[in-house]
Amino acid sequence: MTMQSASGHALAVFDPPDGEALPDPLAGSDAAELDARAVSAWFGERKVLDRVSLTMAAGQVTALIGPSGCGKSTFLRILNRMHEMVPTASLAGQVLLDGSDIYDPGRRVTLARRHIGMVFQKANPFPAMSIYENTIAGLKLAGIKASRVEKDFLVEDSLRKASLWDEVKDRLHQPGGGLSGGQQQRLCIARSLAVSPRVLLMDEPCSALDPTSTRRVEETIASLRDQVTVVIVTHNMQQAARISDTCAFFLAAQNDPGAIVEHGPTEAMFNYPQDERTSDYVNGRFG
């Protein structure tokens, strides 16, 4: 695994701990294309997603929009295998990361999740850890050994990418829980970036934040473009319009599973929607 330093050098930092025994078919350092094919999902008997196919282009920001309960968060959680954490959950279809299925039975779920990071609606730093430890928690969890210098570099690099460095550089060893809500959320972004993901999933990352913090997170997302593929679920139409390159509109009729009504370049989705329901939604007439 290599990591791009701020100055553009490829810094060979870490060997995957399980590298030799099982070559990691998903490995790579660049943003990767994520391709969902005919994904359906169930919770118990209830079907919540019906054959959703969507290609999320490498290095672009894809926004998933739609009213509550339309399955977009479920879809997002399927993209890094968090869906199966729910005991009754099941799914059909494929999710291809650069052409290789993350649900392949021979594939490790931990590797898939390391390549496809996730930021949650509620910031969830590890409260027992300092800011520094939180940032590189992913290394510890993956059992990756790194020298002090490498860690220092990685902490600064990740916090800079998450636009948090200047605010916390003097108190790296204080608890992560002591930060404000917006800072905690950016710490979680930094934590996800520290394991060099190729895709970053964000589940309404700003819904619990004030406008200033929201703007900082949006700037962070904009600066990550090209380095990682970002897929973001948002309820905020303006946010989707501001930050995304492409957009997918999910909708579920009463008691029916959710599906994508329309997707395409954000500009087209907001200005010339083809479907009347999309037009109604993006113009705030329902949802």
Partner: peptide, 12 residues
């Protein structure tokens, strides 16, 4: 939230 945060980082 914290459990999922750890799993999402690729934790066993």
């Amino acid at each position: 939230g914290e459990r999922e945060g750890a799993y999402a980082l690729g934790a066993t």
